[in-house]
Amino acid sequence: MCARFVSALCLTAAMAATPALLPAQRQHRNDDDETSRVDTTVALSSGGVVELSLISGEIKVTSWNRDQVRIKASSDGGLLQFDATNGRVSLTVRSDHDDMGDTEYDVTIPAGARLITHSVSADITTDGGSDVEAHAVSGDVSVSNVTGRATIESVSGSLTATHVGHGLRVNGVSSDIKATDITGDINAQSTSGDIILGSTHSSFVHTETVSGDTRFGGTLDRAGRYDFHSHSGDIVLAVPAIGVTFDISTFSGDVQSDYPMTLQPGSEVGQKHMEFSINGGGARVTAETFSGGVTVERPGHSSHED
């Protein structure tokens, strides 16, 4: 195994040195040489894809300004399967028995690469990449510094996104969701987890929970649309004093606002539904809960800080 692995690395190194001559050919494939350890660097064309998957352990991804992928990986009891072409690098792990132990990936990708990761219980942490997908079941997922779009999912692990450039989609079940410094459309959903959106710069935000609380604190686009839905969770909206039109509905919860409620002509006023505007209206903010409360507050004036 070891001799074959060294041969594979030599082959990899030789082919990585001449990627321009072999643009579409396979650089490395070790499924004939399954191993418990990989330590190599391969070339990846601009816009290439890096795909990583494992069961348990940890995936850590960082980025650099080279058209290369650096991979350090080890597995306690599983066999790593590494495959690299000029446009795609993939690493996965398999085992012939149930208990393969933990697997660790420490990968550095080109800043412009697309990254796709899958895990079951492993935590996923990524820093960089153009478009990033990270899917886990019970593992925590944290992505940061994504220049394009990020999609992150977990059933029960926490979900965190920081500094995403062109949109974020987050799905959890019991997962708490925290997103900070996000530009572009935001779509966040969790059944029982809380959703916290801070320092966002989006013209479209949509959140849904059943029992989780929601907290939004970001800039508003006067032409933007912001929808927050929950069944029994509270919704707290820290919104700046620009033109905003609110449409708030709750069946049995309370509504509180730091801003005076200036009613629109034809607005409904009642226990369950109210529409009001501040500074002449503009950005449309909708908040609906069945039994949760809705609070509209000025940024920095929170009585609901975590």
Binding site: V137, V210, S211
Partner: peptide
């Protein structure tokens, strides 16, 4: 996994 099933059933109940 049983822990995953537990999470799912709890959330289905919610």
């Amino acid at each position: 996994d049983t822990s995953t099933v537990t999470v799912i059933e709890k959330n289905l109940h919610i």
